[in-house]
């Protein structure tokens, strides 16, 4: 009984994904009829310059927003766990995770417009850092729950001043959390659509991959999308595998 139920749930979760992957090898390109195995759509995908430009933009956004959010989120988590925290700090660090994307998108658009800020990749990065910081902070904080806070005092007691203690003790212990949080942040940023859409400004120079996917889905589906989806699914799964290893595997230093 239990096994059957879990099987059904897993089918529900995986059949849609597997369907897309299968269709990406469908020669006919139609979702309805199987026209034989083909990797033709992957060739088409690689010839599409727009996709490469969008991929490049997405990686720029994900990379820089992750670097900034990794730093801010880690510091925020340390401040909250090792120093005094209060409900205002907790709320501020929590809101970016739950606020509807659309609300965040329009308020950032209003903000940037009011300041007459030129929109582009940099404004997407700034916006993504907001929610990424909150997520990195949340992941790093779970890492703090794992370890005995006394080790930091033990290090002071044994003669390690603040900076030494941070480099030798605190950082190595939370590092898996920082890596996992950063990978999460990278995936979120890589996949994020609405906020990027609103804060990218007019013109196609700062189109990101999710924006391109959206227009491909919304306005005329081309079979290339299946091939692209397969790539993105595999890419996301790889990142998740790596981050799982980082959290659970042996500590790095």
């Amino acid at each position: 009984m239990k096994k059957i139920y879990l099987c059904i749930v897993f089918c529900f979760l995986y059949i849609p994904i597997l369907t897309l992957i299968t269709l990406s090898f469908n020669k006919s390109g139609l979702p309805t009829s199987w026209g034989g195995f083909s990797i033709n759509w992957y060739y088409e995908l690689f010839e599409n310059q727009k996709i490469f430009k969008a991929l490049f933009n997405t990686i720029i956004v994900a990379f820089f927003s992750t670097i900034i959010a990794g730093l801010l989120g880690t510091l925020l988590a340390m401040g909250m766990e090792l120093r005094k925290s209060n409900k205002y700090i907790e709320a501020t660090a929590f809101i970016p995770m739950i606020i509807p994307d659309i609300v965040m998108a329009i308020s950032l658009l209003s903000f940037f417009t009011l300041l007459q800020f030129t929109l582009g990749l940099h404004s997407i990065i700034i916006s993504h850092v907001v929610f990424n910081t909150a997520f990195v902070c949340a992941v790093v904080r779970t890492r703090f729950k794992y370890f005995d806070h006394n080790v930091i005092e033990a290090s002071y007691d044994l003669g390690g001043k603040h900076i030494i203690t941070f480099i030798k003790i605190t950082l190595p212990i939370i590092l898996p959390g920082v890596i996992a949080g950063s990978l999460l942040s990278f995936t979120l940023s890589f996949d994020e659509f609405i906020i990027a859409f609103f804060t990218s400004g007019a013109g196609s120079s700062s189109t990101t991959l999710p924006m391109l996917i959206y227009s491909m889905i919304r306005f005329g589906v081309t079979p290339e999308i299946n091939a692209l989806s397969t790539f993105i699914i595999l890419f996301s799964f790889t990142i998740v595998f790596i981050s799982q290893r980082a959290v659970k595997g042996k500590l790095l230093i």
Binding site: F147, D148, N150, V151, E153, A154, S155, D157, L158, I169, P172, I173, L251, I253
Partner: peptide
């Protein structure tokens, strides 16, 4: 002075 913590506080890494 040195303190031996109740939880021992050994460095896990």
């Amino acid at each position: 002075t040195n303190l031996m913590f109740q939880s021992y506080a050994l460095f896990p890494h």
